[in-house]
């Protein structure tokens, strides 16, 4: 993969997009690839739309932000509206299908626009807390910046201490990761 993969992950503050972005690019870095991650941040410490700009490449990466992404994932109505600017004809745009009244705001110029029921799945089948891990699974499936075993390794590295305290969390997180990948696999 010579080309730089550019990903914009956007959600409400607190949805955990920054933490999964960090884990994801960390995993790529651990594999010896070049990765660059920059959170956007405003004056406030919490709240507001939070965007994680990630780039993964085999070579050194240029500017930390970019105009158009290969993958955009937006997890709230505000996040959708905020991130359509990063979409062009090469962009896969993924949003959570539980967001209401968003049809008109979805990008019209994307290579693909995919709604996935990540939040529903999290709530009904897994646990609301692993919503962002489902998103990470989807992002990895859509970009293959790392493969599933490496992603699990990265989760283990980051959350291992929690898994030790509560061993149920390990399968829960790994299932969430796989579930996220499944949700997008057929639709890409």
């Amino acid at each position: 993969m010579a080309k730089t993969v550019k990903i914009a992950l956007a959600g409400e503050g607190g949805q955990g997009v920054q933490s999964v972005a960090g884990i994801m690019v960390g995993a790529a870095n651990d594999k010896g690839r070049e990765a660059l991650y920059i959170p956007n941040f405003g004056v406030e410490q919490r709240g507001g739309v939070s965007v994680a700009f990630c780039q993964i490449s085999d070579d050194k990466i240029g500017s930390p932000k970019f105009k158009k992404a290969d993958l955009v994932i937006a997890l709230s109505d505000r996040a959708v509206r905020r991130t359509t600017q990063y979409v062009d004809e090469n962009t896969v745009f993924i949003y959570d299908s539980s967001i209401e009244d968003i049809e008109d705001d979805l990008p019209k110029n994307a290579k693909k626009v995919i709604g996935i029921p990540a939040l529903d799945v999290a709530k009904k089948e897994l646990h609301p807390r692993v919503f962002n891990v489902i998103i990470m699974g989807a992002a990895i499936e859509a970009t293959h910046i790392v493969e599933m075993p490496e992603a699990k390794e990265a989760l283990e590295k980051k959350l291992g201490y929690k898994f030790e305290q509560n061993p149920k969390l390990r399968p829960l997180n790994f299932t969430a990761l796989e579930k996220g990948a499944e949700l997008v696999k057929e639709l890409l």
């Binding site: 960090g22 690019v25 960390g26 870095n29 070049e34 990765a35 660059l36 991650y37 920059i38 959170p39 941040f41 990466i61 930390p64 932000k65």
Partner: peptide
């Protein structure tokens, strides 16, 4: 600020 906050190797 970019250099401050971004992560890279």
């Amino acid at each position: 600020g970019y250099q401050a906050k971004m992560r890279e190797s």
